[in-house]
């Protein structure tokens, strides 16, 4: 399955880079369109793009099972900057064709 993830990540990278290359000025707008506020992600943006899924999966394991809570990196914290799920998470996911079932339980503003 690793190759599927790799392809997915590659696709995601391509998808986000393509508009930047074609129109670098629109960067700020793109950010705004996707409902993101704030300057920096909790980690390097590139890293996040490629690794947020693994990070979240790892986090949910250590948080729930070992009680390791780092509020700044919590899933609950994403929404303080990525204010819209539909415009941010879902948009990208439907582009790469994944459907995480997380939001069945986790509250995230539409």
């Amino acid at each position: 399955m690793a190759w599927i993830r790799f392809l997915g990540a590659l696709l995601a990278v391509f998808m986000t880079i393509a508009p930047l290359v074609s129109n670098a000025d629109a960067h700020g707008d793109a950010k705004h369109d996707r409902g993101t506020i704030g300057e920096k992600c909790i980690k390097d943006t590139d890293w996040m793009r490629r690794n947020h899924m693994n990070m979240l999966m790892e986090k949910r394991h250590v948080t729930v099972r070992e009680g390791v809570r780092v509020p700044a990196e919590s899933l609950l914290n994403c929404k303080t900057c990525h204010t819209s799920r539909e415009k941010f998470c879902d948009k990208c996911h439907s582009y790469v064709g994944v459907q995480p079932d997380c939001f069945e339980c986790h509250n995230y503003p539409k």
């Binding site: 070992e66 009680g67 390791v68 809570r69 780092v70 509020p71 700044a72």
Partner: peptide
């Protein structure tokens, strides 16, 4: 050792 980190 992030200051806000807790653990069971």
């Amino acid at each position: 050792a992030a200051p806000e980190r807790t653990e069971a």
